[in-house]
């Protein structure tokens, strides 16, 4: 084991891992973090804590992560390179680790243009690949990015994101390979709706033997309505929503659409469980966290492995 990360332990045990996410509040409301996290307790192995997601100011991801940690759960610290330079990122990594956070996800982050401070200067001192490299170097070599020794280095289980659907498609596996080469231990993918395309992607991933080097968690997002599906298809860059999904949702009454959306999510998980190289699921229920337990349960992903079970491995 490289770290004490619960996610690492679950993945190493051969179990399918389950993660979900919690967006910190836009204000000093620790109880909001607790509310959201509580919905997920015992249903997921770790909870991603987003970092100023969509470039909107929120409670810092490490602070919200600490709150979640104090609840006996396992946060995944998301970190975007948009808001901090390498000094700030490294100090936050040390700080978060000192407070018990041992898993993180490295991202570049949405462009400031999309958020509530479009006038802010994006930092982008590093990109996500270089952030992965830096975190790995801190852990494995005990060195700061600048080369100096760290007195007691943080041991982070390092994740990165992958979007199998953004074009050019042929570049997507190469890009994943780059993140693996940089040192990513696990990957959480963009929401998978186009299962066929994802399966094709995973085949290419396995052909290159990348499935042996990194744990891939397929991103799952339940659709609340046909309208949401259309929005995701047309308005969200890099999102691939096949027409069949929209048609299927349109095929039922408006009142039944949420249930149909959850059904699609569960079926997707069941199908993707069989795909070689898929080692778990990252469930992003956008403003619908309360449905995560139902999805996890219906997809047959319960019970989540208990701490003592994993220790016996």
């Amino acid at each position: 084991m490289k770290t004490t990360s619960r996610l690492e332990t679950v993945l190493a045990s051969g179990n399918l891992a389950v993660t979900s996410e919690c967006g910190p509040p836009r204000g000093a409301r620790p109880e909001k973090v607790k509310e959201k996290a509580l919905l997920l307790k015992d249903y997921v192995d770790a909870v991603n804590v987003t970092d100023n997601q969509t470039a909107m100011v929120r409670m810092s991801s490490w602070a919200a992560g600490v709150i979640i940690k104090q609840m006996g759960m396992d946060p995944i610290l998301q970190m975007v390179t948009r808001d901090r330079n390498r000094l700030a990122m490294q100090s936050d990594i040390i700080g978060a680790y000192s407070l018990g956070i041992n898993t993180m996800l490295c991202l570049s982050g949405d462009h400031p243009k999309f958020g509530d401070h479009p006038m802010a200067k994006g930092v982008f001192d590093l990109d996500s690949v270089q952030l992965v490299q830096m975190v790995k170097k801190m852990r494995d070599e005990g060195k700061f990015q600048g080369g100096a020794d760290i007195d007691s280095p943080p041991k982070m289980f390092v994740g990165a994101a992958a979007n199998p659907f953004a074009d050019p498609f042929e570049l997507r596996v190469a890009r994943l390979a780059k993140k693996v080469k940089a040192g990513a231990d696990f990957i959480q993918t963009q929401c998978v709706f186009n299962l066929e395309k994802f399966e094709k992607y995973m085949e290419m991933v396995c052909d290159r033997g990348l499935d042996k080097q990194v744990h891939i968690l397929a991103g799952i997002t339940p659709m609340k309505s046909a309208g949401m599906a259309r929005y995701m298809k047309n308005k969200v860059p890099g999102m691939d929503v096949p027409d069949e999904i929209i048609k299927r949702l349109e095929g039922v009454s408006k009142a039944e659409q949420p249930e149909e959306g959850l059904k699609i999510a569960v079926e997707s998980i069941q199908r993707l469980k069989e795909v070689r190289g898929v080692h778990g699921f990252h469930i992003m229920a956008i403003e619908w966290e309360e449905k995560v337990p139902q999805i996890v349960k219906n997809a047959g992903l319960l019970p989540r492995p208990a701490e003592n079970e994993l220790k016996n491995l």
Binding site: F124, A161, D167
Partner: peptide, 17 residues
């Protein structure tokens, strides 16, 4: 985003997000 190891996930039909 001045990415040296891009593209990010926001690219769409060859255009920036």
């Amino acid at each position: 985003k001045h990415l040296l190891n891009g593209p990010c996930g926001g690219t769409s039909h060859g255009k920036c997000e």
